[in-house]
Design a protein around this nucleic acid. Structure first.
Lengths: 168, 168
DNA sequence: TTAAACTTTCAAAATATATTGAAAGTTTAA
DNA sequence: TTAAACTTTCAATATATTTTGAAAGTTTAA
């Protein structure tokens, strides 16, 4: 396979994976493009490479910066802004985990905590089932939360090393 | 908070979480409804409770069955089909992990394996960057895959217990 | 200042996804 | 058989999300 073709495939695959996991396809593609670019790229270059509009490129880049996955670079003597992606996979994974936890897991945990406090008639099957499900899910979510917390603080080697010590 | 209100909130929260993670909102809501129902429900009851059409209810239920989260029940002397959700949170988590791995992670792993075999000029920065990113992501994805595999085979207590032994 | 170079915004358009509901299909009991 | 009870299908519709592109905004150099 040619490098050019391989690059396309990578961008496509990353875009598809992103969209299946609730991340805008274009955002994932721009990220993929930057991941395989040795040098920082301009908005123009990104528009060109992915055939997207200026507005789309601009918004997507701002989002990626908001997710902590991409940063702006300035080159001496140039007006243009350049964009560069952190290439460290472990940082990427942590960054994504961190953002999604903040945006999605935390709010749900808050609701679950509230809901598990609701009380009612212990002899009412409706109440009993509701309460059990909510409580169980709350516990699971808290475990996930705790694990993410550890992962966010951890070094890559330590993290996977520890996992494999048990899971091997 | 009243039980009725709490139920609504739970269904909403579950639906929102689902849609943020690439799962159809209605599917997540139907699942939530069944999770807090002590008894199996009919299509009619689900349509009524969530104000959705028959077609939608039917398709959604079929999807949930396909995900292994819901099963049909038959009651003696009745024509109607009843639907019941497994209430074991750990089973739910495993089931979802299993399906998403099969549907989404596995195909990406296949592509990444291919792409990491592409070769090129080691002095070409374009190639070097491409290759490094693809290889790194491939390794990460394989680690995730391995961990999921362990999780799928594991008992809940063993799994979290082992995690906490390290992560505490 | 000014104007060229560049970035951002956002209403409108395009696209993708989800939902409806009526018709077609299936099963069962008599 | 038949017809009532129930389930499934799918084209049309509705909704939600993404993208465009031109106009407005900003920055910089001269």
């Amino acid at each position: 396979m040619e490098l050019a073709e391989a690059k396309q495939k990578f961008i496509e695959a990353w875009g598809k994976l992103g969209s299946e996991w609730g991340i805008n396809r274009t955002m994932a593609q721009v990220h993929a493009l930057l991941l395989i670019s040795p040098e920082a790229l301009t908005t123009e270059e990104i528009m060109e490479a992915l055939s997207i509009s200026r507005g789309n490129a601009n918004m997507t880049l701002r989002d990626l910066i908001g997710w902590g996955l991409v940063e702006k670079q300035h080159k001496a003597g140039e007006r243009k802004e350049y964009f560069y992606a952190d290439k460290d996979t472990w940082n990427i994974a942590r960054q994504v985990a961190k953002e999604r936890r903040k945006r999605e897991l935390d709010p749900v945990l808050k609701v679950l905590d509230e809901l598990s406090k609701v009380d009612g008639d212990v002899n009412d099957p409706e109440y009993k089932t509701f309460n059990k499900s909510v409580t169980d899910i709350n516990m699971l979510a808290k475990n996930v939360d705790k694990t993410l917390d550890t992962m966010l603080k951890a070094e890559e080697n330590w993290f996977w090393g520890s996992l494999f010590k048990i899971f091997k």
